[in-house]
């Protein structure tokens, strides 16, 4: 690991000031991806600004039909939250399926969303539930947030403080996990809301995306079989040693079917 300057931020404003003051400063959330990247010298920031001491960035609360989760809330905390388990059990299931217990005790919602790993779980929830990413500067809609592999709409100096998830009528998550890392080879979150149905897919493409054909089919008939016949094109999907693009395309339909079944409690 290359040397860097370390700062423990006392507040979001303090973190923002230090972030803009550093030559190549980076934020440290739970560090479950970043520390590994630093060790492999894949990242070499001049300054690390640790968000771990900012109490206002942690916790889950219900507010006006939304579940607002602090960016520094750990996966284990999301999975154990009674509010989450009651109003959107799929999000608790998703959080409980990330990595392993020790990773879930450190890794955070905000860190995962900001990193935008194509195989991370949370992006499926952000897209599938139509969440709003709240930063120190603005709110960013789910459909505008993920821009590509590890790319987001976040501007330099911008810090995710909370994520607001609208509470759906029903939601379900299904993942075909890599057996070693538990990252999603394909993960699908399906949510039924008053306004329609959203289908968020992670793991399959460069970043999480929606499947409008499936959403349309599920509005007409919210049942597992409704999505089974929707064909997904593999042309823009990921292909690697874990799965080919064709296989991932197939898995999207299978996981969507299971996610709908989960949403229906089947």
């Amino acid at each position: 690991m290359y040397a860097f300057n370390y700062h423990k931020a006392s507040s979001v404003a303090d973190a923002a000031a230090r972030l803009s003051a550093g030559v190549d400063a980076k934020l440290l959330a739970g560090g479950q991806t970043l520390i590994a990247a630093l060790k492999m010298r894949l990242a070499a920031p001049s300054d690390l600004i640790d968000l771990g001491g900012i109490a206002e960035m942690r916790g889950v609360r219900t507010e006006g039909g939304k579940l607002v989760i602090g960016a520094m809330t750990t996966h284990a905390q999301v999975a154990a939250s009674q509010d989450v388990r009651q109003s959107m059990p799929a999000l608790a299931v998703l959080a409980a399926s990330i990595g392993d217990r020790m990773v879930r005790n450190m890794g955070t919602l905000g860190g995962s969303v900001a990193n935008a790993d194509p195989a991370a779980d949370y992006p499926a929830a952000v897209i599938g539930l139509g969440a709003t990413i709240i930063t120190n500067k603005r709110g960013i809609g789910a459909d505008d947030f993920f821009k590509g592999m590890y790319e987001t709409a976040l501007q330099p100096g911008e810090i995710i403080t909370q994520v607001a998830f609208p509470i759906p009528q029903k939601c379900g998550y299904a993942k075909f996990a890599n057996p070693a890392s538990r990252y999603a080879i394909v993960g699908v979150l399906v949510a039924q809301t008053g306004g329609g149905v959203r289908v968020g897919v992670t793991g399959a493409g460069p970043c999480a995306f929606r499947v409008p054909e499936m959403e349309k089919a599920l509005v007409a008939n919210f049942a597992p079989d409704a999505v089974a016949s929707v064909k997904i094109s593999h042309t823009s999907l990921n292909s690697d040693l874990h799965a080919s693009a064709e296989y991932r395309a197939h898995l999207v339909a299978v996981m969507a079917k299971r996610a709908v079944a989960a949403a229906l409690g089947q």
Binding site: Y6, K8, G31, Q32, I35, G52, M102, V103, M106
Partner: peptide, 16 residues
Amino acid sequence: HLNGNAVKSCNMLALQ
């Protein structure tokens, strides 16, 4: 155990 929770001590900074 960090504040009572199991964590991997090779994947965090001492300063955390």
